[in-house]
């Protein structure tokens, strides 16, 4: 895959925390204008890869190219300009506990658009909340919300600036089916607009609904990455094992993947 068509590219990246090595010399290219899903067993470093790709964590060695430029090569203004066009939903929502729900969603808008009037900001905030299906909890603190609602607020915060790229770390965890459906519909719509989504999930139904590309990770290594139809046909026993284990873990939601696997058969 050439650089021009990659949204983010990790080159020979090594990352460890303290004495624990997460991955070594890992390379991965994430395509632009597509929805790439990272799957793998828990604790294999999916979230860390996502944060490294988004430039939130710097690896100990190797380089990370995002939007044709290394994160480290950008100065502060350039970084802010890129951040204005990206959104990130954290696994634990990571809402600012000392701000209300409204302030949480407002802050990216206020920061990137100081020229906006309060009315404009409120309009955009309410639109984002409506898109993700957030109920009226404007003046509550995040700690008063359920994890699912916190995820919605986090999602609204990520999309309020109308980003070009979304990084989603397990966005549907803790959501009921109705809200999950609404989020998936939003992601599909977002992708249809030609924007990029990089998504980490363990949920096969999410993968089946939105993935264009699929990357399978295990023990700090990318086993396979490519269009989902190609990946599900992989003969690599480790890939097959992970896909099967994912299927067994999520037996009740397996219909989509089964359908997908069936579709993949020649």
């Amino acid at each position: 895959m050439s650089v021009s068509s990659a949204c983010a590219e990790l080159r020979e990246v090594t990352f460890h925390t303290g004495q624990c090595l997460l991955f070594e010399n890992l390379s991965l290219s994430l395509a632009k204008d597509r929805c790439t899903v990272l799957m793998g067993p828990a604790g294999c470093g999916k979230s860390t890869i996502l944060k490294i790709a988004a430039g939130l964590i710097l690896p100990q060695s190797g380089s990370v190219i995002f939007d044709q430029k290394s994160w480290e090569a950008r100065n502060e203004e350039q970084t802010i300009a890129v951040r204005a066009k990206t959104g990130f939903v954290f696994q634990n929502a990571a809402l600012w506990a000392n701000k209300t729900v409204r302030q949480n969603i407002e802050l990216p808008l206020q920061f990137h658009n100081p020229q906006f009037s309060q009315a404009q900001i409120e309009e955009r905030v309410e639109e984002a909340a409506r898109l993700v299906g957030l109920r009226n909890v404007w003046d509550d603190r995040p700690s008063h919300l359920s994890l699912g609602e916190q995820k919605l607020v986090s999602f609204a915060r990520a999309i309020v600036n109308d980003p070009e790229t979304l990084f989603l770390d397990d966005p549907t965890a803790g959501l009921d089916n109705q809200l999950k459906e609404r989020l998936l519909a939003f992601i599909e719509e977002f992708r249809r607009q030609g924007k990029t989504v990089i998504l980490v999930t363990q949920d096969p139904s999410v993968t089946a609904r939105v993935a264009d590309d699929l990357a399978i990770m295990r023990d700090g290594q990318i086993l396979v990455v490519g269009p989902i139809h190609e990946v599900v046909q992989s003969q690599d026993p480790r890939v097959v094992e992970i896909l099967t284990s994912v299927l067994s873990q999520a037996a009740t939601f397996s219909q989509d993947i089964l359908g997908l696997l069936a579709e993949g058969q020649p």
Binding site: K51, A54, G55, L56, I57, E76, T79, I80, V82, R83, A84, T86, G87, F88, F90, N92, A94, L95, W96, A97, N98, L107, P108, F111, H112, R157, A158, N161, F167
Partner: peptide, 21 residues
């Protein structure tokens, strides 16, 4: 206390993610 709990709950990363230093 506040800053260390913000690190632990990834709130600092959330600031980084929207471009706030």
């Amino acid at each position: 206390t506040e800053l260390s709990s913000m690190v632990v709950t990834h709130e600092i990363e959330a600031y980084l993610a929207i471009g706030i230093n």
